[in-house]
Design a binder for these strands. Structure first.
Lengths: 330, 330
DNA sequence: GGGTTTTATGCAATCGATTACATTTATTTT
DNA sequence: AAAATAAATGTAATCGATTGCATAAAACCC
């Protein structure tokens, strides 16, 4: 029996006689044969893998997104390769190694600081690239986004409805696209509610617990304090509340706090954190699905338009927000 | 110029004349040539990748371990493939696909429920396997472990030194090797301190926040309550404290709590969580290093003994523990 | 039963690199 | 300068599967 027949018995069972097929299967069973993926991939001109560029693998925010990607990819028999985009970029051009189409059949970038142009330089559309969570401003590549602006606006409106009129915001890292979107949402909502945008109530941050704690210190040092604060991430919101607690300031009695993301701990923080829920696993899953479509479709998005999606924001109300004190209500 | 010369210019620069080498490099620069990894791997009989079997990718505990693995692996030019061992196992034999040596040059299992025998059946020592964090009881494969028993004992001794004599423990999942090690550590330390091991003070759990909350409910319902509780994970400790807070019970005033892991939030929880620090990134890094050694060494551990390691436990004291009340001190 | 169509199998090229061996070219030695 | 040695390059086989084309075998038709 020739190797060709074996190959067909495996990848096109109906192009082979039933008896032969059974013989092949029996032999495979007996010898423990497994197809050599490397050889198959070489011949088929694909790699059977997608690479996920993660700004920082250690950041637990991404693990849920990754789980969604992995689930969708493995359903299609695709391997998931992870690469730390910040680290790889630091080590001279190591990141470029991942972008070429002999490494992966597709790329999901969770890192918005990697631009369109960066990918284009390395790959001219092959392999296809999809952004998830983050994206590069003005990109023409498909992206799966969360409604960051709408989410931030929801947070502000919730506080306004509780009677708050002095509302602050803890920003994410300055160069991050999510930071800008969420800040824009906050400003738009403040504006829509007829409240002034007070620059001194925008605290610098970087999504981390420590940044939230620093914002708390800034808040404590203020003569005129916001009565409510929205944070651009749950981690910062928790860091903020934690540091305030150490200073004897109680949330929500003395200040209301809204987070962003709805990470696992938020429900169980003390107090429970009111926040904007981001379906991280779903974002990952959708990104993988879109990418798989692009891979199958030869990289052309069938209708010309990139298959981008925006997932809606929802507010989860917990214990960290309460109606503004009488001073606010005037 | 032949392809052989090009190949040598790249992988053995000193076997080629300097002029030719420069010509090759120039041509590469000009044409944007990249070696086809698939072809190289086929010829070299390797894959250039290691696979990490993660029980649950969405669990943020593992993301740090993964970061350590990725850093060490990418330093060696190895790709990191992630696979969800629970999911892959659920979908019939899909997990076996990852174990063969035409998929990966090595395997790191973070899943102790995958046994020696399971790996042996699929691979007869090729590719090499290393356990990290978890391991299979009685395994002869190398493993990078944390001193779970010692850590749990540290936690208990800390409480005893504070004067606690009624000490409970929230268990991890029943079939988990870490659960057993930590439980053994608790029992050993109680014993060494002359305290009785009270089975009714061992709460069932599964490492999750929700399990901690359930343990809190159980604690609340007890006639005779432990004055201090050690949890087999920080998540459970946080869930425990959170649920107690909702019931109006204060930590550490009414009960002291010690966690296990030192995840990011522990420092900033309210109160800060006293816990056993586990250097997750380092565990991952060491596991990758050991695995890389095995890959290079042809799978033979040079001295016969598997290159296992155990990392020492350290106690981090924060606000969730305080001296026992006078009732305890008698 | 002979011719025609359909189905099943084999042959051999191919994917893109690596490498043992052969050959050519350069360098050293006497 | 010829011989001996060393260095550089080329030739061609190889890794293990896939697949276009050719051929053989079976099924069908009148």
């Amino acid at each position: 029996m020739s190797t060709a027949t074996v190959s067909r018995a495996l990848s096109a069972p109906d192009r082979v006689a039933e008896a032969t097929r059974h013989a092949v299967m029996a032999a495979i069973e007996r010898t423990g044969y497994r197809v050599n993926q490397t050889a198959r991939n070489l011949r088929r001109q694909r790699t059977g893998a997608i690479v996920v560029l993660v700004p920082n693998i250690g950041n637990p925010f991404f693990s849920r997104v990754l789980a969604g990607i992995e689930a969708a990819a493995s359903r299609e028999g695709l391997n998931v390769l992870i690469a730390d985009s910040q680290q790889a970029q630091a080590r001279d051009g190591q990141l470029r190694n991942y972008l070429h189409d002999n490494r992966a059949d597709g790329i999901i970038s969770l890192d918005g600081s990697l631009s369109d142009g960066f990918f284009a330089a390395a790959n001219r559309g092959r392999p296809p690239v999809v952004y998830a969570c983050e994206w590069s401003p003005g990109t023409r590549l498909p992206s799966i986004r969360f409604d960051n602006e709408g989410g931030a606006a929801l947070a502000v409106r919730h506080l306004v409805e509780l009677g708050h009129r002095r509302i602050g915001h803890i920003l994410g890292p300055a160069d991050n696209v999510l930071t800008h979107a969420r800040q824009a949402g906050v400003e738009r909502a403040l504006d829509a509610c007829g409240l002034a945008v007070r620059r001194d109530w925008f605290f610098e941050g970087d999504f981390s617990l420590a940044a939230g704690a620093r914002a708390a210190q800034a808040w404590l040092g203020m003569a005129e304090r916001p009565s409510a604060v929205t944070a651009s991430s749950d981690e910062m919101a928790c860091g903020f509340m934690s540091e305030l607690h150490r200073a004897g300031v109680a949330v929500p009695r003395d200040v209301s706090v809204v987070g962003f993301d709805d990470i696992d701990i938020s429900e169980r923080f003390i107090p429970g954190l009111t926040t904007i829920r981001q379906p991280r696993q779903e974002i990952g899953g959708r990104a993988a699905s879109v990418l798989i479509g692009l891979i199958a479709g030869g990289g052309q998005s069938d209708d010309g338009a990139p298959a981008s999606e925006m997932l809606p924001a929802t507010l989860v109300v917990r214990g960290s927000t309460q109606p503004a004190g009488s001073m606010e209500l005037r």
